[in-house]
Nucleic acid binder design. Structure first.
Lengths: 231, 231
DNA sequence: TTAATAGTGTCTCTCAGACATTATCAC
DNA sequence: GTGATAATGTCTGAGAGACACTATTAA
């Protein structure tokens, strides 16, 4: 029982969390959407989302993690709050607030989630995204903008890759995300001098065609690292 | 009447907006706090804040602007959403969400607001900030961090100054905010090359001591401008 | 050996920091 | 002129981009 009277419940906005799930599929950035299983917009593609549940959530990030777990069978993703959107018209249920999150997921994790029984994800090209329910297109724009700008000075794009990857793979992800070509030697120099990466013990991997196999790396720091400058 | 049933009102969190009001007083950065005029924490110093009011607010930024206007007689400030904080314990009234905003206000505007009848602001040194109600110290930390990091690549600190200012004044604000000394000629070069500033028509100003008066400038673009690099 | 990609070495050019120099005011 | 601060000019060094060159694999 609260110690002090609060604003009347019927004058409170609805509070939801919506998650912009991004992954890399066939070398291109994709948004992971699911079909809604209830009204409003039952059956339509939309961001993974749900109510903030005061009775079970310890904070907003806990809401986001619960929603990812319950609706997507996803855990341990890179997760970052974007910002909150609110207004009378964005949700037909009434005046609502959505706290938007950005989540990055390696494609293999997404496939494992589906294999474990998660409702299927549809992977949409952000440049060809159809009109979505609510203001989800706005949230996607915010997510893309955040990803693009933060990528230029952090290890953010690495969270779109599996736990281990080659340097050319990592460079390709940066280029996809930022939409610009990067200088090869500068890229290596930067990451090596800053000790961003850790060699995977003597392992390297050979792939299909005849070519030199690349050294495998993982992030030296499993959480996000920011640099002072570009690339 | 909403077209679809929403989560029961009594299961909705409280939704508030809290604004970290920053200004520059006697050359140092200060947080503008006001004494609360109701429970909980009646009479204690806290951030300017209030409920999101679905019946009158068109979105969350409108809530923030209304609260600034009604509680602080402040309008036209630089205003930027920080992020949202939520949880069961941050407010004794119950599980609550606060959407935190950063507002920058020139000291003369703050003084004019008080002269116009706003409840007095107490200006607190962020490095000597006492323990505040709710989780307001966390919100202040978030605001300071945002201001510090964004200052290094944008015109953000200029919004702490009156509409016109000299280049040495602007440089001093950057130095205060970022906590580092800046190179004089590099600072000028950067701002001039990027056409960030506009000379105030032939005006320069003479001050107290015998010294050369400085050229007055204003921001060429009245909204925030971001650079690609430092300083 | 050849094709193909991985990775290195080195030159150059840009740009920020350092700092000396000049300018402009009050007295 | 002198003292003080404003503003400019120029040198230098660090670091990013360009790109040629070497390395390592499969066929």
């Amino acid at each position: 029982m609260p110690a002090f009277p609060a604003i009347a419940p019927e004058r409170r906005p609805i509070a939801t969390v919506d998650i912009v799930l991004l992954t890399l599929s066939e070398g291109t950035l994709r948004i992971g959407l699911q079909r809604r299983d209830r009204e409003p917009y039952d059956g339509e593609l939309a961001l993974v989302g749900g109510y903030v549940r005061p009775e079970i959530d310890s904070d907003i990030e806990a809401s986001a993690k619960r929603i990812l777990r319950d609706k997507g069978r996803l855990e341990g993703l890179y997760l970052e709050q974007l910002r909150s959107f609110g207004g009378p018209a964005r949700d037909p249920r009434g005046w609502s607030i959505s706290i938007a999150y950005l989540a990055l997921v390696p494609e293999d994790v997404l496939q494992a989630a589906e294999a474990a029984g998660a409702p299927p994800f549809e992977l949409i090209d952000p440049d060809r995204c159809p009109a979505l329910p609510f203001d989800h297109n706005l949230l996607i724009d915010a997510a893309m903008q955040r990803l693009r700008s933060k990528s230029s000075y952090s290890t953010l794009p690495a969270f779109l890759l599996p736990g281990q990857f080659t340097l050319p793979e990592l460079k390709a992800v940066y280029e996809k995300v930022m939409g610009t070509a990067l200088n090869d030697s500068a890229f290596r120099r930067k990451l090596m001098e800053m000790r961003i990466l850790e060699e995977i013990d003597a392992k390297s991997i050979a792939t299909s065609q005849r070519r030199r196999p690349a050294q495998m790396y993982r992030l030296a720091n499993s959480s996000l690292t920011e640099f002072n400058r570009m690339v």
